[in-house]
């Protein structure tokens, strides 16, 4: 069952929210009220070493009083602190989502925006799929993950909304700089395969520009 994903938003397909899957992860026996995390699943927070908490970045599994989060064998488990049962799970980039692995069967509806297939993709032998902030090339026949073709910020952009945090500085790729450069009347910012035109006075997004056709 899909928890929520980018297609729930008006700007279509952009991954703004978690693709958590509700239910029991593959390989875990389901009991009446869900499933228990395996004994070797380890917590992702609470380490003393400053460099041991790297999992904490993606916002969809930030620290939450209701849930504990545990990692085991490529999957992150969301564990209800009250029942101690797994309530949702997430295949992680670098874990279950890694080249050579078979695409997780629960992720059967994560096709990407056709524009992204055209922008990042290049090979008709592959399906291009989105999960955990990345676009993957997946072999159509074997369902094997062949590689990560793009990493995405997942930042939400839509016409009329404010420039997201993190775009203070001009960052347009070189091949588009002769057309899209900052001036007193317009700023341009690149994000996840698009260029956005910004009103410098209000910092509102004024226009979305698809690339490739405009190089």
């Amino acid at each position: 069952m899909r928890y929520r994903d980018a297609r729930d938003f008006e700007d279509n397909y952009r991954p703004a929210w978690s693709p958590l899957i509700l239910g029991c992860p593959p390989g875990l026996a389901k009991k009446r009220n869900g499933c228990m995390p395996p004994g070797q699943a380890r917590p992702i927070w609470g380490y003393d070493e400053p460099y041991a908490n790297w999992y904490a970045y993606p916002s969809w599994y930030r620290y939450d009083d209701r849930y504990d989060w545990r990692y085991n064998d490529g999957y992150l488990y969301r564990v209800d602190r009250t029942t101690l049962m797994i309530s949702a799970f997430l295949p992680l980039l670098g874990g279950a989502l890694y080249q050579g692995n078979i695409w997780p069967s629960d992720y059967d509806d994560y096709a990407v925006d056709p524009y992204y297939v055209r922008y990042y993709g290049s090979d008709d032998d592959y399906d291009y799929r989105y999960a955990d902030g990345a676009v993957f090339a997946v072999d159509r026949r074997s369902q094997r993950i062949e590689g990560i073709v793009a990493l995405l910020t997942g930042d939400r952009w839509s016409l009329g909304s404010r420039l997201p945090d993190g775009y203070d500085i001009y960052n347009v790729p070189p091949e588009y700089r002769d057309r899209y450069y900052d001036s007193d009347s317009a700023w341009y910012r690149y994000s996840d395969g698009y260029i956005y035109e910004i009103d410098p006075a209000t910092l509102l997004v004024r226009k979305l520009i698809e690339l490739l056709d405009n190089a």
Binding site: W54, Y55, L93, G95, G133, N171, Y190, S191, D192
Partner: peptide, 24 residues
């Protein structure tokens, strides 16, 4: 590896930011 990916992702910024862009 998931930790490695998380670490690397935090060191990768979207877009092409030349030094002049940063300074400006």
């Amino acid at each position: 590896r998931p930790q490695l990916l998380a670490l690397l992702r935090q060191h990768i910024v979207t877009g092409y930011i030349a030094q002049a862009d940063l300074e400006k």
